[in-house]
């Protein structure tokens, strides 16, 4: 299961955080900080997986943004990596060449998208098209 998803830029500003396991605010801030330190220090040809406490961080860098996911160590790492990519592809298609500012100004839409892709710490919809259709539909509701 996914414990949390973080989207951070290279300076460590959190652009999106989704927590499926409850942590208090101090813990959340500490986790974000630690994870930024870990992923930011890794070179590009390193693995996208880092052991972190008793869990595993699966992360991927897209331009200046790190998408990190904390999963159980028994989860399929390549699956999680692909799930991150699916989410990014949806964002990219939805915003049309997504950039960091899109995420800042439309954070509530990003949350809506993440809720269409993941729920309760699990992947919900494996198809990019279906998520996009759904988002379109929701945006046009009164």
């Amino acid at each position: 299961m996914i414990h949390f998803i973080l989207v951070q830029n290279r300076q460590g500003k959190t652009r999106l955080s989704k927590w499926y396991t409850p942590y208090d605010d101090i813990e959340k801030r500490k986790l974000s900080h630690e994870i930024h330190k870990i992923v930011n220090s890794r070179e590009s040809k390193f693995t996208n997986f880092v052991e972190f406490r008793t869990h595993r961080i699966i992360y991927r860098r897209y331009a200046g943004l790190f998408f990190s996911m904390c999963v159980d160590p028994t989860d399929n790492e390549l699956f999680s990596l692909e799930a991150i990519h699916l989410f990014v592809e949806v964002l990219d298609a939805y915003f049309g060449n997504v950039c960091e500012l899109d995420l800042v100004f439309n954070f509530y839409k990003v949350y809506a998208i993440i809720d269409e892709v993941f729920l309760a710490g699990e992947l919900m919809e494996p198809s990019k098209q279906i998520v996009l259709q759904r988002m379109d539909f929701l945006d046009n509701l009164p």
Binding site: E82, L86, L123
Partner: peptide, 11 residues
């Protein structure tokens, strides 16, 4: 609808 880099619904 379900194709990801040439594989049908890997998830």
């Amino acid at each position: 609808e379900h194709d990801i880099s040439g594989v049908t619904d890997p998830f």
